[in-house]
Nucleic acid binder design. Structure first.
Lengths: 164, 164
DNA sequence: TTTACTGCAAATATTTTGCAATATC
DNA sequence: GATATTGCAAAATATTTGCAGTAAA
């Protein structure tokens, strides 16, 4: 399975990162990495914590925060803050070349693959700055919400024309 | 002055937004808008609040939060969450076509104008989604930090070769 | 006059920190 | 055995909420 290969590669990368920094390879750290690389969705700390609890694997919240930081630092996990309070995370893997469509009405986030964009960005250079990665957030209104808005506008108009 | 024109236009837009939504035109709301459109930098709620206090203009934090929300909704202010806890904001104005270079070492944020990018993005369409705007965050390492890292790597090497 | 808005303080939510116990190296 | 890491609880931080008083329409 492609999934498994990715996970194995991630573990290897994490391992050599920890070794390089002379940090310890605790079971908690690898359990968290494993969990993250077993799902495809965005997640927040709370839901990651709960999903580990569901597997009867207990780690403290502090450890989840600590481990996520390490994973972000070594490039295995990406942090997002889409506008709400809690940070969202996602594994860095096959879907590296995608951006996020964020509906400003309902807050839903949709991922969109766009390999062309990656090519476009790779040609870019910035003064006095070495790029490691980038994230594009596209804000707008999803069709679902657009329909709702149109409907409510229409009924507003009816109301007004009635009053007049 | 270009600056003043932008501010006047912003006030007019806010006014008609408030009227359209049947919200009240309170002095607090316009004082906050005025303050925001008098500066060019990113800011957070706390610093906006303090900068109003410095002018001996007191508004409660709750009102600042409330007003910023309105300004975001009507497209006069943009909210960013660059990875730290508190949200950053910026006025939407002349510099609409820029992105943000974020140094993952020191956290400093640099704005970069890139009109070409705007053109590229305007040609983009996404399924079942109506774009209102987008933000590109470019993460990497600024030259300042790069130099520091290189220096410390070099001294690490020296240390090791000494020990050996 | 009506009721939306403000200010304040308390509540909530998220993340960070201190410290004793534990487990890795 | 030395010390980095964990878990827990408390602290810190950022934002939201409830409510009584005030002011815009």
């Amino acid at each position: 399975m492609v999934e498994d290969k990715l996970k194995i590669a991630a573990k290897a990368k994490f391992m050599s990162y920890l070794e390089g920094k002379k940090l310890r390879k605790t079971p908690e750290r690898f359990a968290i990495l494993d969990k993250i690389y077993s799902t495809n969705d965005h997640f927040d700390i709370e839901s990651l914590y709960l999903s580990l609890e569901e597997d009867s694997y207990h780690v403290s919240l502090a450890t989840v925060y600590n481990t996520i930081d390490l994973l972000c630092e070594c490039g295995l996990v990406r942090k997002h803050q889409f506008g709400n309070q809690q940070a969202q995370y996602e594994k860095v893997g096959a879907t590296i070349n995608h951006h996020h469509l964020i509906c400003t009405e309902c807050g839903k986030i949709k991922e969109v693959k766009d390999p062309e964009f990656l090519g476009y960005m790779n040609s870019k250079k910035y003064n006095a700055f070495t790029i490691s990665y980038f994230t594009l957030y596209v804000y707008g209104i999803c069709n679902n919400c657009l329909r709702k808005i149109k409907r409510s506008n229409a009924s507003d108009k009816n109301k007004i024309s009635h009053i007049k």
